[in-house]
């Protein structure tokens, strides 16, 4: 299943920042991990990933650096900046609150529909 573009616009950057939290990564690596770890839900092609990375870079959330890979080829590695770490922490809080709110409404699977008030408990 693929996520709607509008939802991806909000979730994509957080997902990329989260992946970079564990260490620097290059573009293809990010594509692979996003697909693998989200079971294809957050999979994104180059058309989405690279512009997103450049946007994050322009906001100072990530920093890019060309370095040599094990195969002696040049790769551009991205890593989180301190500003990016703060943003990630803030975004995670917001997403948690959002998930909680959606769960409380019974939107997320496995959650009971809560009484919104006025009904028997």
């Amino acid at each position: 299943m693929r996520v709607d573009r509008e939802l991806m616009r909000g979730a994509g950057p957080v997902a990329v920042l989260k992946l970079l939290e564990s260490g620097e990564k290059y573009g293809y690596e990010l594509v692979e991990q996003l697909e693998e770890r989200s079971k294809g839900v957050l999979a994104m092609g180059q058309s989405t990933l690279y512009p997103m990375l450049y946007n994050l870079e322009s906001q100072g959330l990530v920093k890019a650096e060309w370095r040599e890979s094990e195969s002696a080829r040049g790769r551009k590695y991205y890593h989180l900046t301190s500003k990016g770490k703060k943003r990630l922490a803030a975004d995670l809080q917001q997403w948690s609150a959002l998930v909680e709110a959606l769960s409380s409404l019974g939107i997320l699977p496995g959650q009971a529909t809560p009484a919104l008030g006025g009904g028997p408990r």
Binding site: G45, Q46, P51
Partner: peptide
């Protein structure tokens, strides 16, 4: 998997200019 080249170019241009 790459998608539409023109769209990619437009998005990349916009993002790089922001940089």
């Amino acid at each position: 998997q790459f998608g539409n080249a023109a769209t990619v170019a437009k998005l990349i241009r916009r993002a790089r200019i922001r940089c």
